[in-house]
Structure formats: C-alpha cells, structure tokens
Design a protein around this nucleic acid. Structure first.
Length: 562
RNA sequence: GCGGCUGUAGCUCAGCUGGAUAGAGUAUCUGGCUUCGAACCAGGUGGUCGCAGGUUCGAAUCCUGCCAGCCGCGCCA
C-alpha cells in the first residue's frame, strides 16, 4: 500500500514538473509513514514540506496543488486525501483496502511477513562463543537470545544462514581450567596454599574432577571423551574438562532452544596451519615489525590507537592472531556478510580483527565483519546486585534462570531490549510477578483467540473465511486499529532483519497484543450476526497468526492455553 | 587520559535513517466480570527527553562542547 502511495506521489510530482509548477531538477527523498494518530488518516507524507523551499512556495500551498493533482488520478484504494498541520498530506484508505490485509494473512499463514530480500545470500552468524571454562551465565543468555533471533530473522528474509559457535580451547585460560581441575582431583580447595594462581574457584570444578576420577564418558556436540582418572595426566584432564563443560553448555543451550550448525575450535586453526598462514601473509604484506623480541602488527595503520603484539617473546601468538585467521577463513568460505554477536566488553577486538584482515590484503572490504554488541546484564536478587565473577564462582547461570523464570520469559526478557542498552534482570520480579511479564501479555492474546475458536466449535457455530464484502463490516475504531497494525508487520520484520534488531519485533507484538485486548473488550467476537461474526473471527485469526509468526522469530512459544 | 555504549515518568524501558499533542509496563488513584479467558479493559496522576549551544519550516532523534554512569584500554581471551 505504501508503495502504491509512493508511486502515486512520484507521478504527481513528475506531472507538476512537466507543467512547470515544480523546477525541472529537484532533490527529494520520498517519505511515507504510517500515522500515529487516526485523525491523520492511515499514511502521511511530508513531501510538501520537503519541497517547499525548492518550489519557492509555502508548504501548505504546495500541498494543495499536489492534492488537487492527485485527485485527478488517485486509485480507488484511497478514500480521501487531506492537508493538515504545517503541510502534511494525509491519506485515508478505503474500507476494502484496509481490510484486505486479513485475507492476505489468512492465505499466507505462517509465511506472512517473510520475504526473499536476502535471495539466498550466504550469511554467517557467530554468537555465544563462550569458552569452555564454566557454565553459561546470564550474559551468554543474552547473546544466545539475540543471536538466535537474528538468525531467525535473516532466514525469514531469504538469507542462507550458518550459525556458528567459536571457542578457545588452546590458550592460557584453558590451562588454568586444567590446573584447577587437577588441583580438585588432588583434593585441594581454592583456599589451599598450593591452589593454582588464577585458578577457577567455582564449585563446578569439583564436579568436573569427580567425573574425571570416576571415568565418566562425556558426549558433547563436538567432543567425546572418557575420564582417565589419572590426576597427573594434565593433557587428559584438559581434554576431559573441556568436553565436560562443553556438554553442560550444550544442554543449557538446548534447554534455551538455541542451536548451531558449526562449532569452530581455536586449536583447529593451529592444527590446520591457518594461524601460520595468516602470520606469513601479514609479514609478507609489510605491516609487521620486530621489537623487544616480539613481532608486532602495525594496527595503527588501520585506526587502532597503538600497535599490537602478534608473537610474544615466548614464541606463542596473542589471541587476536587466531581471531584474524578465523575471520579470514570465514571470508574464504564465501560469506559476504558475517555478523558477530558479542558482549560489549570485547569491543576492543573489533579494531584489531578488522585491522588484521585489512593488513592481509586479500580483498576483504573495510568494516567487514559486522558486529552486534550487547551491554552487560545487571542481575538483581533480593533487592541487591549479584556480582558475577567466574573465578570467584559467584554466578547466575542461564540454567538457573530457565529453571526459575522459565524459558519463554527469560528469552523474551533478554531479547526485548535494544542490545546497546544495559539490562537489569530482577530475578525476584521475574519469578514472583511473572504474570506481569510482557511475554504473558502477548501469549495471552494468542490463547484468547484459540479459546474463541474452541467456543465456536462448542456452540456449533458455522464459520467461513470472511470475503471482502463481509470484512467491510469491521468499522469500529479498535478493529481499524488492528488491521492497520497487522499491515505493518512485514515492514517491521524487514527492518528488524536489516538492522539486526530483534527487540523491535518484541515491541511490535506488545502493541499488537494490546490492541487485540482492547478490541476483545470492546467487541463481541461471537456475535449473533453471522456476517459480522465471520468478519471478527477472521480478524482474530489473522491476529493469532501474526502473534505466532512474530513469537517464532523470537524463539518464544505461542501456547493455545495458559 | 584515550576509545565504545548509555542518560527519556518514582522504577524498568520503547521511540533515535529528523515530523504533527513524547509512549508502554510497573507503582499509585478511580471505574468495569449473571455475557466469547479479568494473566484483560477504560480513565486519572506522573516529563526542564542529563546540561548548553548549533543545523532547519520542524530536534528526544543530526552536529559540537560539557556533566554523569557502565565497559574496554595486557606479550590474558
């Protein structure tokens, strides 16, 4: 509909140029917005305001001319056109045009709102990417909820999405994990003198050690290991601990309904020679130099505030080298779009990774890859902030939240805010007043429609999809508001996918649910008049369908009863 | 000190590719269930959109400066 108005306006402007009312060369961006206030009609354009100066006349005068010209060739979908305020042109849709959206939704069902804008473009999304040194916490949960929803959005807009989880299984942190587990195997605790420096103090390390000593077999998504029960075999302990924690993370992610196509390991980048290859390319490119016994990359050439060490004096590489190798490998796999969803505390790696990729000079565009960074999650419990510390072992795990708050509410809460906003997760509130959680408000609207449908059968009422004429019986304010809202859904999805902002879906669903509840209280769906009943049921089912479609994009269920 | 993000109602947050009278939830106050699910609805109270300039027909939105908070600034990841 918006497109129809746009082309109508465009041809009108062309016509005005031809007759000389408007200059031959003008600059403008055609803007057509859905209105917020129903007295402003359904759509509004600011075109007269934008062109007033170039046309050399007052905005309202220009608007009048435009509206007069439109009147001669407007489509039957538009009932009337008005000028308002400083010079806005407001479009009022005809009844038929407004209610056509219901028919469209009932026809397209679960594909309504989806499109093929991505045209099969290969996109890779990396998210969570937690190192296997402990259970997933609420911050990982936020990344999982956002990352997964972005994947659903991209898939829904025609992209060919690969979901990927990258983890470090080769660095110092893994060494600390192995040493901590070994210490536990030997019966040591964090307070003992010989406890490893920088060891992980959490009680979960004890579980790992017990399982290792009990020769347990671990089957993680990408690891299969049996405990050797030998406290002196550090390599065996390392392999076992990594597999154990990976298995825990897998099960948490599964409970969260989040999955991956590929698990990438840092160790594999070394084993396959990718790291070495990257280093060689960087040296060949001339962007490196030796200093103080280390090899440096001139990242300052690419916008960094200081150069970075690539190879340490002990011969090992710093973490960003395999990171660069990993992303070069993503590029070589043919992903023109790569999105990394990470916590904002890793923000400094962006410059380094991009600098490394530019320095390799292998045709990667500047500003590749994309990043979506989420801010920290502040956890409140008992009215106090819970400090997260992996080493100290104070923790609010994702598993705790799923168990206490529920998957749907947890996912919704974590995905419903803009990633760039800090988020306060009040556990007591989420548990004790869970009925006030917006996700129930949305699910309730869905369940209500289902209930009406059940009632329909109970009362032996016949029902058919309302035809166009019948749908014109929907004339109440609440009904018109709903139809307008429904018609906005495809654009909301497109924008959310384009901007990587799943939270806008959550906002939309809340508004849709709210308008449905208003409608439900204002109008009897199961009216005695068969025609009106059919029209309202059709509207209700269309709402149910869109709620379902939107919730699926967020990974939240749409229950038929609550 | 440098860089990133944030600052909107008592609280939690939308709105930010400029548009008409700045929104929602919660809290608080008043109403609404003999009738399709009251986990709901209708209405009231509540705002210097951090501060100050600038851009323009128009700024919560864009630009500059300042203030405050969070995060990062390692030959850890």
């Amino acid at each position: 509909m918006k497109d129809a108005i746009a082309s109508l306006l465009k041809s009108t402007i062309n016509q005005l140029q031809t007759v000389g009312t408007l200059p031959k060369t003008i600059n403008y961006q055609l803007n057509i917005d859905a209105t917020k206030d129903k007295s402003h009609g359904d759509f509004a354009s600011n075109i007269a305001l934008a062109l007033a100066k170039q046309a050399g006349m007052h905005p309202r005068k220009l608007a009048e001319i435009i509206v007069e010209t439109i009147a001669t060739n407007k489509a039957h979908d538009i009932e009337k056109v008005e000028i308002a305020g400083p010079g806005f042109i407001n479009f009022f849709l005809s009844k038929a045009a407004a209610s056509a959206i219901i028919t469209t939704i009932l026809e397209r069902k679960d594909t309504f709102g989806l499109n093929d804008l991505g045209r099969g473009n290969k996109v890779q999304v990396e998210y969570v990417s937690a190192n296997p040194t402990g259970p997933l916490h609420i911050g990982h949960g936020r990344g999982a909820a956002i990352g997964d929803s972005i994947c659903r959005l991209l898939t829904g807009t025609g992209h060919q999405v690969t979901r990927e989880f990258y983890y470090n299984d080769a660095g110092q942190q893994i060494n600390n994990l192995a040493l901590s587990t070994q210490a536990r195997c030997k019966g040591l605790g964090p307070d003992d003198d010989s406890w490893p420096t920088d060891g992980y103090r959490g009680a979960y390390i004890n579980d790992v050690a017990d399982a290792y000593m009990a020769k347990e077999t671990i089957d993680a998504e990408d690891k299969h290991v049996t405990g050797a029960a030998n406290p002196d075999d550090l390599n065996a302990i390392r392999d076992f601990a990594v597999a154990y924690l990976r298995r825990e993370q897998d099960s948490d992610l599964k409970a969260f309904d989040v999955d991956f196509d590929i698990y990438s390991l840092e160790s594999a980048l070394y084993a396959d020679g990718k790291v070495e290859e990257t280093v060689n390319k960087l040296i060949e490119s001339g962007h490196t130099y030796e200093n103080d016994g280390a090899l440096w990359l001139k990242t300052t050439h690419f916008g960094d505030d200081k150069d970075r060490v690539m190879r340490k004096t002990d011969g090992g590489y710093t973490y960003f080298v395999p990171d660069v190798a990993y992303h070069a490998e993503k590029w070589s796999r043919g992903f023109k779009t790569v999105i990394n969803e990470q916590g904002s505390d890793h923000h400094s790696t962006i410059t380094r990774v991009r600098a490394g990729l530019q320095a390799m000079n292998i045709g990667i565009p500047e500003g590749w890859p994309d990043y979506v960074l989420h801010q920290m999650v502040l956890v409140m419990r008992g009215g106090e902030e819970v400090k997260l510390s992996k080493r100290a072992g104070s923790y609010v795990t994702l598993r705790d939240l799923i168990d206490e708050v529920g998957r749907d509410a947890t996912r919704f809460f974590l995905v419903a805010r803009a990633p760039s906003s800090q988020l306060t997760f009040d556990i007591d509130l989420a548990i004790s007043q869970s009925n006030d959680n917006p996700v129930y408000y949305i699910q309730y609207a869905h369940a209500r429609v289902c209930s009406v449908q059940r009632k329909l059968i109970e009362q032996n009422l016949s029902w058919t999809d309302a035809d166009a004429n019948t749908l014109e019986l929907l004339v109440e304010d609440s009904e018109k508001a709903l139809m307008k809202r429904l018609s906005q859904y495809p654009e909301v999805v497109t924008n959310a996918a384009h901007n990587f902002t799943p939270h806008t879906i959550a906002n939309y669903l809340r508004e849709l649910a709210g308008e449905f509840h208003s409608f439900y209280n204002a109008c009897i769906v199961l009216d005695e008049n068969t025609e009106l009943r059919n029209a309202r049921i059709s509207l209700s089912i269309a709402v149910k369908q869109v709620l379902q479609n939107g919730l699926r994009l967020l990974g939240v269920s749409a229950p038929e009863k609550m």
